[in-house]
């Protein structure tokens, strides 16, 4: 199979599934093209002007049957391809819970990545093989797109939105990372690499990398420094919701709806607190847009999430 695609390796679980679908579709397409061009060719020769071929008319009823026949056949074929594509899509899109969580910030024209232990990288990502990886991605300026051809995966990174990309590398090696969404002057230079290592090599790499303090600790610092605790602490004078265990739980809002507190929700609560008001509270929280860089915001969110991990049912 890879003889046809000499340079592109299969680097993730998703990749081989995508390839199978691709080659099946390729087979069908070649067959259809051969059929159509073959018929055109045969008819062109056989029914060229003046040839002796039989040209008597088909009965109209037959014509109808032919039309209905190929319409149904096409419909059936397309539905089957659709069904297959859907099943692939939903099987590899599921989010694992035990994965390695990496925070990605895209900006013109570089990728900044941060490991759970606080190790930072630019335009490179080191990950262990055979372990699910979950990228949590934000953009500081325009839309970018995180693209690893060998993994057959791509996800836009959108300002104001937290997007995710989940993959499980299955091969040790270095793979190309590209930006796939046009983002300005140096778009074609916004490239990097994904280094997939054996688990031993990976832990050695973690040890030797300048591990700054971890995300949660940084986040806690910022949380205090910006005065969040001043309202959100249980002993504070202002009445604000307790943030312990918020993450992952449903939050009832003042407008009567209920939202799931995911990363996007936390992010919005901090940058645009007026967007969704928690039921039973006054909208007094100021917006922190512009006072936190995206990287800092990531650490605060990581801190809030850690509160959920330690004691989950405080809410």
């Amino acid at each position: 199979m890879n003889d046809f695609l000499p340079t592109e390796t299969v680097g993730s679980q998703a990749a081989s599934a995508t390839d199978h679908l691709f080659y099946a579709l390729l087979g069908i397409s070649v067959a259809v093209v051969l059929l159509v061009s073959g018929l055109i060719l045969v008819f062109s020769i056989r029914y060229r002007r003046g040839s002796k071929a039989d040209r008597s008319e088909l009965p109209p009823i037959l014509q109808r049957e032919v039309e209905i026949g190929w319409t149904l056949a096409t419909l059936f074929l397309f539905l089957s391809i659709f069904g297959w594509a859907v099943s692939e899509n939903f099987s590899f899109g599921t989010v694992p819970t035990n994965g390695l969580e990496i925070h990605v910030v895209a900006k013109q024209w570089m990728w900044k990545l941060q490991h759970p232990g606080g190790q930072r990288e630019i335009n490179a990502l080191h990950v262990p093989v055979n372990k699910p990886v979950r990228l949590i991605m934000n953009s500081e300026d325009v839309i970018h797109s995180f693209y690893v051809p060998s993994f057959r995966l791509k996800q836009d990174v959108v300002p104001g939105l937290t997007t995710q990309l989940v993959f499980t590398p299955i091969k040790v090696g270095t793979f190309r990372l590209l930006c796939a969404e046009y983002c300005g002057t140096d778009h074609s230079a916004m490239t990097g690499k994904i280094v997939v290592m054996t688990p031993e090599d990976y832990s050695r790499w973690l040890d030797t990398s300048p591990a700054s303090e971890d995300l949660v600790a940084q986040g806690r610092d910022i949380f205090t420094r910006l005065g969040c605790a001043g309202c959100h602490d249980a002993r504070a004078a202002v009445r604000a919701p307790d943030l312990k265990g918020v993450f992952g739980q449903p939050v009832p809002l003042a407008d009567g709806t209920v939202v799931q507190a995911d990363e996007t929700y936390l992010r919005d609560s901090i940058l645009q607190p007026r967007k969704q008001i928690v039921a039973g509270f006054d909208p007094v929280m100021p917006s922190f847009a512009g006072r936190l860089s995206d990287a800092e915001l990531e650490t605060v969110i990581a801190y809030l999430k850690s509160l959920a991990d330690t004691d989950g049912d405080t809410r």
Binding site: A14, T18, F22, I28, S29, V36, I40, A85, K154, E181
Partner: peptide, 26 residues
């Protein structure tokens, strides 16, 4: 007819989400 057929068939590739994820913007 020939070229439109080839263009249309590759449209099916792009309509399939897993393939599109890989080849969109390429």
């Amino acid at each position: 007819v020939g070229l439109f057929t080839m263009g249309g068939l590759t449209g099916l590739f792009l309509a399939s989400v897993p393939i599109d994820v890989h080849v969109t913007d390429t």
